[in-house]
Design a binder for these strands. Structure first.
Lengths: 167, 167
DNA sequence: TCAGAAAGCTTGATACTTCAAGCAAAGCGA
DNA sequence: TCGCTTTGCTTGAAGTATCAAGCTTTCTGA
């Protein structure tokens, strides 16, 4: 009827295996490294730091919860918990959305801004040391392009296609 | 005395920013994707699956805890908890090391092997679809090389340099 | 051969993530 | 304007991660 290869999954070649393992090793080691660095210097994990960064870059240092979740690539649930924690630290505050009573803004506080200011240099240094300092500009470019393609393929369908707040 | 740039951290350029964000987005989306896929099909997170894979590739389907932790790039503590969980599932069993009474082997059981057999095709397919199917061979090669370099830089000093069990 | 240091692994507490379920407000068709 | 669906966000429980502390066994050097 058909050849064996029809049911047999296409296993990874040796070369693909190496690529895939290098990928996993690099990403787990790097995430761990940054998590530790930020936990030590800022008392929060890498992803929480990323939330503060998103906020500081947003107009009026605030973002709707859903929008923030999308930008940070995490679920709303996870974001709710995370913001609750950051709120306890006094680094973020919630504000009601005037035009939609269901809505909430996450707002970066002055304390939050101060933490960012204090911690950002060390974080950038860590990223440089782990990533950019080890790659030639060509390698950086290639890496960025590959990652861009991978991210696009995994993006939830039409993510951010029509957020009302973005007009 | 010195120029401003001496204290001012070297922030990321726009291009570097893009690379770095693509990196983070791709890695978080991919990890989430694989975690969900495996949680759904195998009832375990991606990293636990990786432990089983390490075991199935090892001679006699067993590995010392420390060795396994190193290969999987996780701490011993994390591994202890993980193996405890996998043991509950009946997929792994612990065995005392005869030559070192402190030592433990993690051993893949037949049930564990069966799970792997059942689940591996879907997992490979997911990895292909998310990563390899989207990249040209050149891009794959470049990605692998970059990741290799990054991983090397983050590897704990002389990791695995002298494990007695490896002679 | 013996004391102290190191290795191998585990434990428990606390923090974080995930999932499913839930509530309230907004949108929408009849 | 009424009922139903969708959207926005939160909650609680269960699973997993991390850190520091701990136990036992082995190694080391005097």
């Amino acid at each position: 009827m058909n050849t064996a290869s029809a049911d047999e999954p296409r296993w990874l070649s040796d070369e693909e295996q190496r690529t895939w393992r290098a990928f996993m090793h690099a990403t787990t080691l790097l995430e761990d490294h940054l998590d530790r660095q930020l936990q030590r210097d800022a008392g929060m994990p890498h992803i929480y730091y990323g939330l503060l960064v998103q906020l500081v870059e947003a107009p009026r240092r605030r973002l709707r919860m859903t929008e923030l979740a999308m930008r940070a690539k995490i679920t709303r649930s996870r974001l709710s918990h995370a913001i609750a924690r950051l709120e306890k630290n006094g680094w973020v505050r919630r504000e009601d959305c005037p035009s939609d009573k269901r809505g909430q803004f996450a707002v970066l506080t002055d304390e939050g801004y101060a933490v960012l200011e204090r911690v950002a240099p060390g974080h950038v240094a860590a990223v440089r040391q782990a990533l950019f300092d080890r790659l030639t500009p060509e390698q950086q470019k290639a890496l960025g392009e590959a990652m861009q393609l991978i991210a696009e393929g995994l993006q939830p369908e039409g993510a951010g296609a029509d957020l009302p707040w973005l007009r």
